[in-house]
Amino acid sequence: MSDLAERVETWMVGQMPIIQMHGGTSVVREADAEEGVVVVELGGTCSGCGISDLTAQNIKRDLIMDFDEVDEVHVKVPDTGEMGSSTVEGGRGGDLQYSTESSDHF
């Protein structure tokens, strides 16, 4: 995992505890400091949650504000609710499944 990915993971734990508190999960799928791109995937109860789009927008805005090298953030929000069985400490991680049917979701 890259230094940027590790820093974004740490940031997610500190800044977005609401995700875990509500049974959701998040995974940093990509963090490229040279390109300025971060891809975060939400899972668990984020699937179908009425505020998942708001959470995604907050993550996008805040990551760009808090990390000078980040210019573009994509947050994938699952539509299916399917989540892989492997998780890491704090209920984060795992192989998340998501749909690309909605144009609002990556």
Rank of each mutant, 00 (worst) to 15 (best):
C49A: 13
G48I: 01
Q15V: 01
T45D: 09
E35G: 06
Q57I: 08
G14I: 04
V37D: 05
E41Y: 05
M1K: 04
L63C: 00
Q57E: 15
G36C: 12
S2I: 11
E41L: 08
R61T: 12
G24N: 07
V39K: 15
M12G: 09
I19A: 06
E35Q: 15
D3F: 03
Q57D: 10
V13R: 08
L4D: 11
S47C: 07
N58G: 05
E41C: 15
C49T: 00
D53C: 09
T10V: 04
R61Q: 13
L54S: 11
D53M: 13
M16N: 13
T10S: 14
A33Q: 13
Q57Y: 06
A33K: 14
C46H: 07
V38I: 05
L4P: 03
E9I: 07
V28P: 01
V39G: 09
G50I: 10
K60Q: 08
I51H: 06
G50L: 14
G48F: 00
I64A: 10
V40A: 06
G36T: 11
V40G: 07
R61M: 05
T25D: 14
Q20L: 02
G48P: 04
A5L: 02
G50Q: 11
Q57M: 08
A33W: 01
C46G: 12
A31L: 03
T55E: 09
T45Y: 05
V40Y: 05
A31H: 07
V37I: 07
T45P: 00
M1L: 09
E34P: 00
E35S: 13
S2C: 03
I64M: 08
E6F: 08
K60G: 11
T45K: 11
E9M: 08
Q15F: 02
G43C: 15
G24S: 07
G36L: 05
G36W: 02
E34G: 06
S52W: 00
M21S: 08
R61K: 07
R7D: 06
A56Y: 07
I18P: 00
E30Y: 06
S26T: 02
R29A: 15
M12K: 01
G14Y: 05
V8E: 14
A5F: 02
G43Q: 00
I18K: 04
V40F: 09
I64Y: 10
I51E: 14
G50V: 15
H22I: 02
V27R: 10
R7W: 02
I18T: 11
G43F: 02
Q20W: 05
V28S: 11
R29E: 10
T55W: 07
V37K: 04
E6V: 13
G24Y: 01
V28W: 04
R29K: 15
A31W: 01
Q20K: 03
